[in-house]
């Protein structure tokens, strides 16, 4: 069983695992919001809720997984930091996943086939783009390009379907991690956020306190 977190768009938290009776892989709990401004506020409540709905305590998890982006950095970091810390707290492995892969996996599972282009907002008049060529024998999406940045008006023409996503499901992140683990394909990605952009270097105006 895995706790899965993705904050590359809104905040999504899930628990995935094998069904006790059938042994089938499924999402046991998923909760979240598409609010892109309150990741730090909501992350704790959602983790608490997902574990409660799944009816388990953290100690029963075999690991923690998180979407590493791409996504707006401030929010993205909240989910990764939380996932790192939870994994540390239960002394289980952390499994990084590319958030676009989770989007592609969800589309293929919903019935799409063939080439698929995943597009998400990268702010500053840019999109983050990845290209896929279906699922492989282990059921994992085959990423052939990206994720990379493209100006909003210059996204390469899709070879098949273009899918503009605004939500990443932590359930999908978790399912991917479980599939990859079962297939002996870990690690799927590096444990580093997919910023795709050098840091903005405007120095800080300093800390202020309201009077």
């Amino acid at each position: 069983m895995l706790l899965a977190i993705d904050t590359s768009t809104g905040t999504s938290v899930a628990v995935v695992g094998r069904d006790g009776a059938s042994g089938e892989l499924r999402c046991l709990a998923e909760t979240g919001t598409d609010d892109t401004m309150r990741h730090a506020e909501v992350i704790g409540g959602f983790i608490h809720e997902a574990l409660a709905v799944a009816g388990i305590s953290g100690s029963r998890l075999s690991g923690v997984t998180a979407g590493m982006g791409p996504g707006p950095f401030t929010g993205l970091r909240v989910g990764i930091a939380a996932a790192h810390a939870f994994a540390l707290g239960i002394d289980r492995p952390f499994v990084p996943v590319v958030s676009h892969d989770a989007i592609a996996w969800s589309r293929y599972r919903a019935g799409d086939t063939g080439p698929l282009q995943v597009v998400t907002d990268a702010r500053r008049r840019e999109f983050a783009v990845s290209e896929y060529d279906g699922l492989d024998d282990d059921g994992l999406p085959v990423r052939v390009l990206g994720p990379e940045l493209a100006p909003r008006d210059a996204v390469p023409e899709a070879r098949g379907i273009r899918f503009d996503a605004t939500i990443v499901s932590a359930g999908a992140v978790g399912m991917l991690a479980e599939l990859a683990f079962a297939a002996g394909r870990l690690p799927l990605a590096a444990d580093a956020p997919l910023y795709l952009r050098a840091p903005d270097v405007t120095p800080s105006p300093g800390k202020r306190v309201l009077q």
């Binding site: 704790g44 909240v78 930091a81 810390a85 939870f86």
Partner: peptide
């Protein structure tokens, strides 16, 4: 943005340890 890293991690750590 710096504070949020600590806040996210601290909440998850507290929950993981109950």
């Amino acid at each position: 943005g710096a504070l949020m890293v600590g806040v996210g991690a601290a909440k998850a750590l507290a929950l993981s340890l109950d």
